[in-house]
Structures are given as structure tokens and as C-alpha cells.
Amino acid sequence: MTRHTRILMSVIYSAFVVYLFVPLALMVMMGFKDSKFIGFPIRGWTTEWYAGVFQDSEVLGVFAYSMTIAVSSTLLSLVIGVWVATFLGPNKFRGKLIVFALTCLPAVIPGIISAISLRIFARFLSIEPGMFAIILGHTVHNVPFVALVVMARLATLPKSHIEAAQDLGADKMVAFFRITLPYLLPALIGAGIFCMLLSFDDFVRAFFLGGYQPTLPVLIFAMLRTGMSPEINAISTVVLILTAVLGLWAERSMRRMNKGA
């Protein structure tokens, strides 16, 4: 690389970083603005919006609701995903590729289409719109990610480890719980956090499958319609920090896993 291209590259990269972070920085800033209106100029600073968020029982309730959905759908996705991966990974059977493709499909179907079809399907099964329906919707969407990550990890598990366990007296179940599962743990942590983020962040499915109780993204959307207020910025900032921390931690644990294997 010549000097010039190197300079050009770093300029482009810096521009990208600015483009990425300026909107976020603006959003965070507005959350501290001492005025009801979003925009410049900023005449004074306050933390009252944050205080408001943490005292607003509606916001807190919605947050808890979203968390419940995220945790439940994640746990469900992990169980099903591991099951799919251990079934698809080592077994050779006809039509394996088709089963695999079908499993992956929910991850790539556009959210709106998947949401509408799930809504119809839920009605068909007489499942009321609400938490349970959202959990199912998120689980369908998340399972492929879990299965893919777990399959990748499973492929690196030496066959001899399972054989050694069986050799020492373990049946298939014991070998799975004492050898395979601990080996999968880093992958499960990574995939689990990823699922939580996907679920927590989801608007479309939650909107179509939800009942009267909104999830956090749906609540923010509703608040926006009644007018932009710095309270929304405060909520968003809290969510931003939480997800960034979780996401970075997941990324780190995945990287560790790849190095450690």
C-alpha cells in the first residue's frame, strides 16, 4: 500500500465512524437536554428525564415484560437449537440438506412476512396475541442461529472425547451432559446473548403477535406518535448501553471459544 492510499483508507474509515456514532451521540445528548423539545440549541442540561424513566412504572413494567420474553425465548431457542444441532450434526441421513435448509429458513424470511404468517397461525391454534405468542415467534426466528453456532462448535469436538466417556462407563445421555454440553458452553453463551439481543430488539414480530401490553420497542414507537420527548432518548440510551455491553461480552466469549478450541 502506498502512503496515499493508506491516508485515503483512514479518512474513509474515520468518516464511517463519524457517520456511525454522531447520530448515537446526538441521541444521548438530547436525553440530557433541559427542555421538552428535541433539537438545537441546547440551553441547559438535566438528568430529570433519566430520573423520570426510572420512576415511570409503565416503562419499568414494559422493560420487565420485554426481558421476560427475551429470556424465555432464548432459553427455548437454546434447547431446541442444541437438539437440532446434535441431531443434524453427526447423523447422516437422506434429505439432511433439506432439513437443514428448512431449519435455517426462519432466519432469512423477512420479519414482516414471518410476523403476519405467525399471527395467522397463532389465531388458527387459538393462541391469544400476547407474551406466549411473541415468545414462540422469537423462538422460531432464533433457533437457526443457535443451531448454526452449536453445529460449528460441535464439529470441533473430537470424536474421541465422547468415545472416551463411553469407554469409562457413560451411556449416551451421560456423555452428552457431562462432555458435550460443557464443551458447547461458550457457544451457548454467545448464541444465548445474541438471541436475547434479537428478541429484545424486535419490533415487527412483537407488534403483530402482541396483545395490549407493548414490548419496549413497541412502547417507544407508540410514544413517538404522541410526540418526540427526551424521555425517549433516555430510554434509548439505557437500552443502547445495556445491549452494547452484552453484545461486546458475547463477541468476546465467542472469540475466546474459537481460540480455545
Binding site: P158, S160, Q166, D167, A170, D171, Y183
Partner: peptide, 20 residues
């Protein structure tokens, strides 16, 4: 008989020690 029901143990070429 499956491996877990035999009075035989094996030392594997890659040792297959449980890493965790």
C-alpha cells in the same frame, strides 16, 4: 456389548482428556 458395558478401557492416541 456397547463400550460402557465392557470391562475394557482405552488410552486414545490423542489422549482424549476432557478439557473442562
Amino acid at each position: 456389548l456397547p463400550p460402557n458395558r465392557r470391562d475394557v478401557n482405552m488410552v486414545f492416541q490423542d489422549y482424549a482428556l476432557f478439557p473442562h
